[in-house]
Design a protein around this nucleic acid. Structure first.
Lengths: 251, 251
DNA sequence: TAAAGTTTAGACAGTTCGTCAGAATTTGAC
DNA sequence: GTCAAATTCTGACGAACTGTCTAAACTTTA
């Protein structure tokens, strides 16, 4: 069994190599730059070998996306563990989402490209199942926070919206917002100055609308963000070479 | 000039025919089903002729998207003209957005596919300019409502968010939400029963969070929706063969 | 009616995807 | 150390698609 294990290890390494090179290709030349031929060429393997790891281009895409999503899940779990009210944790997850999109523009792109029917219809059962699983874990992390807030009487029960509905609403805002930010629409030209901050504030408005306690004053929000940056994501910010995600507009 | 005008007319008709067939192709077989060859075949023209109307496949896509967006703009303008408070008009625009995605699943798909860099980088200046123009009109329609509410003292001024920021937040929620609804994620399985209604309520929460008057009781919201369905979009609902967009869950 | 001008057709070159038969390598028994 | 069996890798190939370009077909006009 020693032998098979070595083989398996080699196979896994190759698999990682292919994914890594594919990600690099996308980073460098965008999605159309990712072709199976190019990956094979860069990896110095032939096409046939690539196709032993990925049933088709779409499957490769979904696997790449799963990699990205896994990173998001990690950040989200860190955020959910923030030492504060449940509401603060939710704000932290929104922060984490922003951080994730900042780590690489490809992250949110990947999600967008993978969510398309022409991709999901061709990918492997296996890859899709994994994708679904990560998504469910993400949702579960958030639902837990909402449920916790309800149990603690911080979030009044709402006849119209159950916990998962709340998560769906917040998720929509973050996802849609990031997509718009990432699109060609020039928001700054339209008058939206600090896009990420606006999204975060919008998420807060949703919570305010539900009377989710404690309501945030501007001062309190600023303090929270500062704490995220030191207590939760110091490493990540450091890697990005920045001190803060939301450039303060007041001098 | 009579002659050129007739020629121009013929050319325009052909252009419409191509767009129509392309839309049909997408409707029937999805985005990968749309190939220039197929359009040519269906239209009983040759490829060369198609390429006189569209510089490339991407340009055709953007033009299709522009068609969809124009329809949305029409609905939005109807919504913005609702006889009620500014806040009610905003709710009407959210309703309009939902209606639009219901008219054809392709509508939101089109936006998603067109927002991708590989498409926008290849399309014609012209088509892209038109796209931008429609988007700006959409935004302008919404900003006007927000500004109107501020002027009427219905929406308290907010130091952190200017009118365009508010529009961006609402837009994000609708757009992101519709994309998620339209994706393969099975929300009902996750516990979100009436997705469109949840989105609408989330938009209301954002407005509640800003103290945008008049706040909506559940009763008032129901009444509003009913009015939209008779006063604004009776025709559109009729065409869809439905009485209401939001199936009431109470018997 | 015929030359000039315009429009259309579809063959062609260039990509990319995904397959598959055969070449190359590795394995393990002797 | 040798060799047959098993495994893995290779790259030529067919199919589909994009976008171009020349020659043919058609229209206009004098």
């Amino acid at each position: 069994m020693q032998q098979t294990s070595r083989k398996q290890r080699e196979r896994d390494n190759r698999h990682s190599l292919f994914l890594e090179l594919a990600a690099k290709l996308i980073e460098d030349e965008g999605f159309p730059g990712l072709s199976m031929d190019r990956v094979a060429e860069l990896a110095e393997y032939s096409k046939g070998t690539i196709y032993q790891h990925f049933s088709c281009r779409e499957d490769l895409l979904v696997q790449l996306c799963n990699q990205s999503l896994s990173k998001l899940l990690e950040l989200m779990k860190i955020a959910a563990g923030f030492d504060g009210h449940h509401r603060d944790c939710i704000v932290a997850t929104v922060y984490a989402h922003t951080l994730w999109t900042r780590q690489s523009a490809c992250n949110i792109d990947m999600l967008q490209h993978t969510a398309v029917a022409s991709v999901t219809s061709k990918a492997t059962e296996n890859s899709l199942a994994q994708h679904k699983h990560i998504e469910q874990e993400l949702m579960a992390t958030l639902v837990e926070l909402v449920q916790g807030a309800i149990n603690n009487n911080e979030l009044p029960k709402n006849k119209q919206l159950n916990p998962m509905d709340v998560v769906f609403g917040l998720w929509s805002t973050c996802y849609g917002g990031q997509l718009i930010i990432n699109s060609d629409i020039e928001l700054s030209e339209l008058g939206v100055k600090n896009t990420h901050a606006v999204l975060l504030r919008t998420a807060c408005l949703i919570m305010d609308g539900m009377q989710w306690q404690p309501l945030h004053s501007e001062k309190r929000l600023k303090k929270l963000l500062a704490r995220f940056e030191t207590e939760l994501f110091a490493n990540e910010l450091n890697q990005l070479g920045i001190k803060t995600l939301f450039e303060s507009q007041t001098k």
